[in-house]
Design a binder for these strands. Structure first.
Lengths: 181, 207
DNA sequence: ATGTTACTTTCGAAAGC
DNA sequence: GCTTTAAAAAGTAACAT
C-alpha cells in the first residue's frame, strides 16, 4: 500500500458530563460566550489554547471543534469543563470523550484530470459548476474524499487518524489502478 | 369495498391534479428560459419517471420540476446553470442542485459534467458572434480539456474566456464586460481563464 | 486592476423546531 | 431539513483600494 502523509486539519469530538447544567450560570465562568436560545440551543464558547470552539448544552453534553490533534481536542474539552466546574462543583472530573470526525488534507503529488476520474472511478460526484472538487465516497474505511485537479485531497468522516490515512491511501491506489494518477 | 374505491378515485384525482400542476410549472419555467419543446418534453419524461418511482415524497413538485428541467437541459446539450434554473423557478439554487443529485442517483441517470462547449452556441448568438468565432472557441476549449485546464473550473467561465479570445483573434472583438454579462460570470473570471488559456496553450500575447 | 473577505462542498455531534 | 462550530481544498463572487 502506497504511503501518503496526511495532516489533520480539524477534529470534532463530543463529551457528556453526566449532569444537567444551567447555561446562564455556566456562562458566567466563561469569557466571550455566545448564546441565543432561539437561534441555537447550545452555548458557544471559544477557548484560546488549544484554539477551539465548544458548543455546550443544558443536558450536560458538549461538542468541541477546531482542534488539530486528538490530544488537543481532549485537552480543550477538559479545560472547558474545568472552567464550567468553577460555577458548578457537582460536575464530575471523569467523563467520556468521543472523537466524532477527523478532517485531514494530503497531497497526491500528481495532477488529476477530474473529468476522467469522474468517468472511471466509482461512487463519485463531480459538478465543477458548483464546486471545483470531485467527491469520492469510500465504504471501507467509510470516509468521503474531495479530490482536486492539483492533486490535493481532503478526507473527512474518519473517526481515527489511521482511517483518514487509509482512506487517502486507498484512493491513491485506486487512482493508480485505473491509470488516473 | 366502496370506500376503498372512492379513495382510489380521490387519490388518482390528486395525482392527476399534481401532474397537471407540474406540467404547467414546467411550461412556465421552460418558456422563461426560452427552451425548445423537445427539452421540455425530455424534462417531463424525467419528471414522470420520478413520480413513477415515488421520488416526490418529502419534496416539492416545483423542486422536482426544476431539477428535471436542469437534467433535461444538460442531457440535450443546451445547459442552463443552476442559477438560471433557480431564477425562473421558485426554488433555491441549493434545492435544485440537491434534488438533481437525488434524481440522477435514484433514476440511474448518469450525466457527465457540463462541457463548456455546450455553452458556446447560446453565448455566441447572444453576443452576435459568427460561426467562425464559435468554431475557434470550441477548438480552444478542446485543447484546454486535453491539457487538463478545465478540471475544477466553471464551464461557463471557460466558455466565456474561449469566446472572448476567439472574438479577438477573428476580429470580432467583444469587451470582457459584454461576454461576462452574457455568460453570467465576472470580468475577473474571464481574465483569469484567458490568462491561463493563452499561457498554457500556444497562443502568443495577442490580447 | 489587484487585494481582501466570503461563499460553494464534505463530515459529525449536540437539542429542538 | 434547519440552526451553530471548525477546517482544508480551488474557484468564483462581491466589494474595497
Amino acid at each position: 500500500m502506497t504511503d501518503v502523509d496526511i495532516k489533520i486539519e480539524n477534529i470534532v469530538a463530543s463529551a457528556s458530563i453526566g449532569k444537567d447544567i444551567v447555561l446562564t450560570e455556566v456562562s458566567k465562568a466563561l469569557e466571550g460566550v455566545d448564546f441565543n436560545r432561539e437561534q441555537f440551543p447550545g452555548l458557544v464558547f471559544k477557548l484560546k489554547e488549544p484554539k477551539t470552539a465548544a458548543l455546550i448544552f443544558s443536558s450536560g453534553k458538549l461538542v468541541c471543534t477546531g482542534a488539530k490533534s486528538i490530544d488537543d481536542s481532549k485537552l480543550a474539552i477538559k479545560k472547558t469543563v474545568d472552567l464550567m466546574r468553577t460555577v458548578d462543583t457537582e460536575i464530575p472530573h471523569e467523563f467520556e470523550i468521543k472523537i466524532q470526525n477527523i478532517v485531514a488534507s494530503a497531497n497526491l503529488e500528481s495532477t488529476l484530470n477530474l473529468e476522467a476520474v469522474a468517468l472511471e472511478l466509482e461512487d463519485t460526484e463531480y459538478e465543477p459548476e458548483q464546486f471545483p472538487g470531485l467527491v469520492y465516497r469510500l465504504s471501507d474505511p467509510k470516509v468521503v474524499l474531495l479530490l482536486f485537479g492539483s492533486g490535493k485531497v481532503v478526507c473527512t468522516g474518519a473517526k481515527t487518524r489511521s482511517d483518514a490515512k487509509l482512506g487517502v491511501e486507498r484512493a491513491y491506489d485506486r487512482l493508480s489502478e485505473l491509470d488516473l494518477i | 369495498r366502496l370506500r376503498k374505491w372512492q379513495r382510489k378515485i380521490r387519490i388518482s384525482g390528486a395525482t392527476e391534479r399534481n401532474l397537471a400542476f407540474a406540467l404547467s410549472e414546467l411550461d412556465r419555467d421552460s418558456s422563461r428560459l426560452g427552451l425548445p419543446r423537445s427539452v421540455r418534453e425530455a424534462a417531463s419524461v424525467v419528471y414522470r419517471s420520478a413520480v413513477d418511482n415515488k421520488l416526490i415524497r418529502g419534496r416539492s413538485i416545483e423542486g422536482v420540476v426544476a431539477a428535471s428541467l436542469y437534467a433535461a437541459c444538460r442531457r440535450c446539450n443546451v445547459p442552463r446553470t443552476l442559477d438560471e434554473i433557480a431564477e425562473v423557478s421558485r426554488v433555491t439554487k441549493k434545492e435544485v442542485g440537491r434534488t438533481y443529485r437525488f434524481l440522477t442517483r435514484e433514476l440511474n441517470i448518469k450525466l457527465p459534467p457540463t462541457s463548456p462547449v455546450d455553452y458556446v452556441p447560446r453565448f455566441a448568438s447572444e453576443l452576435g458572434l459568427s460561426g467562425e468565432v464559435q468554431s475557434r472557441a470550441i477548438e480552444i476549449i478542446e485543447k484546454a480539456m486535453e491539457k487538463g485546464l478545465t478540471s475544477g473550473r466553471g464551464p461557463t467561465g471557460v466558455a466565456a474566456a474561449a469566446l472572448y479570445i476567439a472574438s479577438v483573434l477573428l476580429g470580432e472583438r467583444k469587451t470582457q464586460r459584454d461576454v461576462a454579462d452574457i455568460a453570467g460570470v465576472t470580468e475577473v473570471t474571464i481574465r483569469n481563464r484567458y490568462k491561463e488559456l493563452t499561457e498554457q496553450l500556444e497562443m502568443g500575447v495577442t490580447l
